[in-house]
Design a protein around this nucleic acid. Structure first.
Lengths: 213, 213
DNA sequence: CCGCATCCCATGTGATACTG
DNA sequence: CAGTATCACATGGGATGCGG
């Protein structure tokens, strides 16, 4: 149960002891989107065995990363302030791993939480600041997200609504975000289909969410 | 041998599949300091079993994170350009874990590589830019580092030399870096002993290397 | 000697079943 | 719904061997 230690006294080894075990940072990732119940975490990480989820939740509590909060008679897990300080770590990992994505295999799912954090990883606040506030609705597979960019702030949540640009896409959208695919090519190839709004807003999207190689 | 996957299509899960296994990011950390031979890696990560080190090196090569390079008739491992892009991840993890350090246990070692990366984690380029170029020599336990700050750039390497301030310290230096301890208190309590140079340069050190809580 | 490979055992993980 | 219990198995840890 105790996190095996590395026999070194350093910041990185300490971090690995606290959140380095399998699944731990994915739990943190999902909790960065918002507080979640046990069942919601299990659903978002659909391959995690329940005993492992239970074990990780205990370890992360002991490490001071998460806490159980009673919200209106149900138990939810949420990050502590210290746990929330893992956001730069998760975003950096997401940005790095995003570039190594290849075509999705059929059994690989996209959850609202994972897609939200991927968008946060790719978000460029400095670029967004120069652009007018814009709302997007994006659909990948079965997950629909409402993406609101206003100044340098980003808000992502599940669902749909009145937006400036609504589009659906397949996983090829990663090439748009990495700059390997122009918005026009993404449209021509059918990777992205605009449902509502002006196509030219896709360029704004691609500059707002961008991970250079 | 194949990294077990998480069944999700996202940047973070991809990253965890590539570098999420035990010891992997510590190997990356040490290689961020510079190319290393097999034996040097094994020495720097003194608790790693040799079979695990060999397995990780193969996996990291397959992942495109590291490569074997022949240097003057010996084999060294070094990061690929893509592997070097893990630096923000390692620094963020180091900065986060550093704050969770408590007193070192007797079996915990400080290696030149771990200390170098901890210093890089705490380095404030924007602060350093406003200060005159300064060279420090720091000793913690048996590791001696020569730390050169010039403008916004930082150079750390093992050894000693002519510096503006030379000091030795125990692990209590973490309180100086986190701001819980003033330079004066660090000196008074014996946590830090100035060997050469002016004591007031310790304040400069503490503002250059700082991790706010 | 360095750079691994092999062996064996302890531990962590995964799948499933089960309970308050 | 929120976990526990159980058991088979994969991985990690430590010692040792071995070829170039």
């Amino acid at each position: 149960m105790a996190a095996r230690d590395y026999g070194q006294y350093s910041g990185i080894t300490r971090a690995m002891e606290l959140v380095g075990e399998r699944w731990a940072l994915l739990i943190v990732r999902d909790l960065l989107v918002g507080p979640r119940r046990y069942g919601e975490l299990a659903a978002g990480l659909h391959r995690i065995p329940s005993n492992i989820l239970a074990a990780r939740l205990k370890e992360l509590q002991a490490a001071g990363v998460i806490r159980r909060a009673p919200r209106s008679r149900v138990i939810v897990y949420e990050l502590t302030p210290y746990g929330r300080e893992l956001e730069p770590v998760v975003l950096a990992l997401g940005a790095w791993g995003f570039k190594a994505l290849d075509d999705p295999r059929p059994e690989q799912l996209i959850t609202p939480e994972s897609m939200t954090m991927d968008l946060r990883s790719a978000f460029r606040p400095d670029v967004a600041l120069e652009l007018p506030a814009t709302a997007y609705a994006a659909r990948l597979g079965s997950t629909e997200l409402l993406i609101r960019v206003d100044g340098s702030s980003l808000d992502v949540r599940p669902g749909d609504g009145p937006v400036d640009l609504a589009f659906s896409s397949d996983a090829g959208i990663r090439h748009l975000i990495s700059g390997e695919l122009t918005p026009q090519h993404a449209l021509d190839s059918g990777t992205i289909e605009v449902l509502r709004g002006h196509e030219h807003l896709l360029t704004r999207f691609a500059t707002t969410f961008h991970l250079a190689a």
